[in-house]
Amino acid sequence: MVLKLFRMLMPRDDTFVAAFAKQAARTVDAAHVFRAMLEDPANGAHYTELRRIEREADEINRATIRSIHRSFITPFDRADILTLTDALDDVIDRMKDAGRRLTLYKVAVTPQMLTMADCIIRACERLRDGMPLLGDISGNARALGAMCEAVDAIESEADRALQSGMDALFDGGDTNSPGHKLMVQMVYDGIEAVADRCEDVTDLIQAVMVEQV
Results as ranks from 00 to 15, higher is better:
residue 1 M to N: 13
residue 2 V to C: 08
residue 5 L to Q: 12
residue 6 F to V: 08
residue 7 R to H: 04
residue 8 M to E: 15
residue 11 P to L: 02
residue 12 R to E: 01
residue 12 R to M: 02
residue 13 D to V: 01
residue 15 T to A: 04
residue 16 F to W: 04
residue 17 V to Y: 04
residue 23 Q to V: 04
residue 28 V to H: 03
residue 28 V to N: 02
residue 29 D to M: 08
residue 29 D to Y: 05
residue 30 A to D: 00
residue 33 V to G: 03
residue 34 F to K: 05
residue 36 A to N: 14
residue 36 A to M: 13
residue 42 A to V: 05
residue 44 G to K: 13
residue 45 A to M: 03
residue 46 H to L: 00
residue 47 Y to Q: 12
residue 56 E to S: 09
residue 58 D to K: 00
residue 66 R to A: 08
residue 69 H to W: 14
residue 70 R to Q: 09
residue 77 D to Q: 01
residue 83 T to D: 12
residue 83 T to V: 10
residue 86 D to Q: 13
residue 90 D to P: 10
residue 90 D to M: 13
residue 91 V to R: 03
residue 93 D to G: 04
residue 93 D to C: 04
residue 95 M to P: 11
residue 101 R to G: 13
residue 104 L to F: 11
residue 105 Y to H: 08
residue 108 A to H: 07
residue 113 M to I: 12
residue 114 L to Q: 02
residue 116 M to T: 01
residue 118 D to E: 15
residue 121 I to N: 06
residue 126 R to I: 09
residue 128 R to N: 06
residue 129 D to W: 04
residue 129 D to S: 03
residue 137 I to Y: 04
residue 141 A to H: 10
residue 147 M to H: 09
residue 148 C to I: 06
residue 152 D to C: 08
residue 155 E to C: 05
residue 156 S to W: 12
residue 157 E to M: 12
residue 158 A to I: 00
residue 164 S to H: 11
residue 165 G to K: 05
residue 166 M to A: 06
residue 170 F to T: 01
residue 173 G to D: 11
residue 173 G to C: 07
residue 178 P to R: 03
residue 179 G to M: 15
residue 183 M to Q: 15
residue 186 M to G: 11
residue 186 M to Q: 14
residue 189 D to K: 15
residue 192 E to D: 15
residue 192 E to P: 11
residue 194 V to T: 09
residue 195 A to F: 13
residue 195 A to C: 07
residue 195 A to Q: 11
residue 199 E to D: 15
residue 203 D to P: 14
residue 205 I to A: 09
residue 205 I to K: 07
residue 209 M to F: 08
residue 210 V to M: 06
